[in-house]
């Protein structure tokens, strides 16, 4: 474990969804996380995770609780990792007016783009920039990323789809690294996105 890990507190936005699983993944790396439910919680964290879940529910809860604006401001400076619904919220466009977005990474998110639950699947992803083994990826009613901007780099591909993207301080996955026992992508987020941006 790198000594810098001890100093970090990762804020996991905990309106709804797989926030506890993200905290568990960070725990495997020996990193502390904190559930973010209020604007006060936001002041105590070094980086953020927007978990998987339902993006309509997250939009409504963040807006009703007055957390949307303070979170939006923090996302201009703090590194962030979004998975599935979280990645949808981070994009600059969404194909659905029921969901709003933070405009922090340059793509259009297409919700449930593979279809309903019966089309959900797992696959082995090859990500040489991140890990030297295949990564077991779980896609649940997953989005697709379209109109990807030129400054966004692709870290993993499934078929013709880019499924793990990075633009500066923003990391976005259309699948759920928090549901597997392998914290490799969380480690990449900490080592290459959070600690490298310091």
């Amino acid at each position: 474990m790198r000594p810098e890990y001890k100093e970090l507190v990762i804020g996991v936005v905990a309106m709804q969804g797989s926030f506890a699983k993200h905290a568990h993944s960070m725990g495997k790396l020996g990193i502390t996380s904190r559930a973010v439910r209020t604007a006060e919680d936001l002041k105590l964290v070094d980086a953020l995770i927007l978990p998987g879940g339902e993006s309509t529910t997250m939009t409504l809860l963040l807006e009703n609780e007055g957390l949307w604006e303070p979170l939006n401001d923090m996302l201009d400076t703090l590194p962030v990792f979004g998975t599935c619904a979280g990645a949808i919220l981070l994009g600059n466009q969404i194909d659905d007016e029921r969901v709003h977005c933070f405009n922090k990474i340059d793509y259009l998110a297409e919700r449930n783009a593979y279809g309903r639950q019966i089309e959900s699947f797992t696959t082995a992803l090859v990500m040489p920039k991140i890990v030297d083994h295949d990564f077991h990826a779980i896609f649940i009613r997953a989005p697709k990323f379209k109109d990807i901007g030129p400054t966004v780099s692709s870290l993993a591909v499934f078929g013709t789809q880019h499924v793990l993207l990075r633009q500066k301080n923003v990391l976005a996955a259309s699948f759920h690294p928090e549901l597997t026992n392998d914290p490799a992508i969380h480690k990449y987020f900490v080592d290459n996105v959070i600690l490298n941006s310091r």
């Binding site: 969804g17 998987g52 879940g53 959900s120 699947f121 649940i140 009613r141 549901l179």
Partner: peptide, 17 residues
């Protein structure tokens, strides 16, 4: 086993809801 992960995976996404 993979199929079961996908099944419980959706329930994980519904948590706190």
């Amino acid at each position: 086993e993979n199929l079961f992960e996908v099944k419980t995976g959706l329930a994980e996404m519904l948590k706190g809801g």
